[in-house]
């Protein structure tokens, strides 16, 4: 019953969108125009826009990547929709005839796993907590993504990864990887280091010139994870959002923003500010260059201020 009404609602949504698109005389070809950039030997990334989800970008706001090993291909995150997954798969096939042997979801946010359907189900893999979180929250994300991205989402369903990954070295497709199990952006965030080239896929633990998102964040743990990433030896870093970088600048930028955010929330609660007063605060110029920073700050207040308020009220006892 629930599934039926879900589908009906989605159908109604799509119909409305189709009609309104038709009314505006727009046509879309639903082609993300993915162009893999080679950043190291056998290592490719697909850089998404540093925007929020929209009917225009169809959810192409995330970085994904793949590594072509000696015997097979490793995919790191699958994008926001079935169409994205399919187009990513086609882009890989244009570069190599090798089979895709492992598809990693770095964490349970929808822009990182909703392309899973395009890949063989027994190749889908994630940390145990990520698998559980996709199972628990995937359907809710999906509804929201249809609303935000419209027909780009057509036929997208949640495909839960079957394989469980654990921290440590892993060989796949004849390629040596190091899996670094961290957390703080979500309950579980997996960074992947391609050992031969020193390319670090840092997942959404690192944002580059784009404000971090925090719907499931635990900032203290996130900051610890950034310290661990910084201690790794890598030649280049692929952030979850924003351009690839060779240094630790994006880690530092993410750290400074999160520290400021955390301090601002704690200070506000300690001064007795109401949430509406917090929402009206201005973001310092220092962070003005981060894409979407005003929007993300307001979201973060909604997500994280209640815990800061509770702590401040407890201290008042």
């Amino acid at each position: 019953m629930k599934g039926l009404s879900h589908n009906l609602r989605r159908l109604a949504c799509m119909l409305l969108l189709t009609l309104s698109t038709a009314a505006l005389g727009q046509t879309r070809d639903f082609d993300y125009r993915l162009s893999p950039q080679q950043v190291a030997d056998g290592v490719y990334v697909l850089i998404g826009k540093t925007e929020d989800f929209s009917l225009d970008n169809g959810g192409d706001i995330v970085n994904t990547g793949f590594i072509i090993g000696r015997e097979g291909v490793i995919v790191i995150d699958t994008g926001s929709s079935k169409r994205y997954g399919e187009q990513m798969r086609a882009a890989i096939a244009r570069l190599t005839p090798l089979p895709i042997v492992l598809v990693i979801n770095t964490h349970h946010h929808p822009d990182h796993f909703l392309g899973n359907q395009a890949f063989a189900v027994d190749t889908l893999a994630a940390l145990a907590d990520t698998r559980r979180a996709i199972e628990a929250e995937g359907a809710g994300f999906l509804d929201n993504m249809y609303r935000l991205n419209g027909d780009w989402m057509r036929d997208t369903e949640v495909a839960i990864p079957r394989r469980t990954l654990t921290a440590g070295p892993l060989e796949a497709g004849g390629r040596k990887l190091e899996l670094v199990a961290l957390g703080g952006h979500t309950v579980a965030d997996l960074a992947v280091l391609d050992t031969p080239t020193g390319t670090l896929f840092a997942a959404d633990l690192v944002f580059n010139k784009r404000a971090p998102t925090t719907p499931h964040a635990e900032i203290k743990r996130w900051l610890q994870s950034l310290d661990q990433l910084q201690a790794l030896r890598f030649n280049r870093l692929v952030p979850g959002h924003g351009e690839v970088t060779t240094g630790t600048d994006a880690i530092e930028q993410t750290r400074q923003y999160l520290q400021w955010l955390d301090q601002t929330l704690r200070d506000g609660a300690e001064q007795g500010l109401d949430m509406t007063e917090m929402l009206a605060l201005t973001v310092p110029d220092k962070f003005a260059g981060l894409a979407e920073v005003r929007t993300e700050f307001r979201r973060s207040v909604t997500h994280l201020y209640p815990a800061a308020e509770q702590a401040a009220l407890q201290r008042g006892r």
């Binding site: 109401d274 509406t276 007063e277 307001r298 979201r299 997500h303």
Partner: peptide
């Protein structure tokens, strides 16, 4: 005072 777009429908701050 309330956000133009509420991030969390269960907790819409209003002053």
């Amino acid at each position: 005072s309330a956000p133009t777009t509420a991030e969390d429908a269960l907790n819409v701050p209003v002053a």
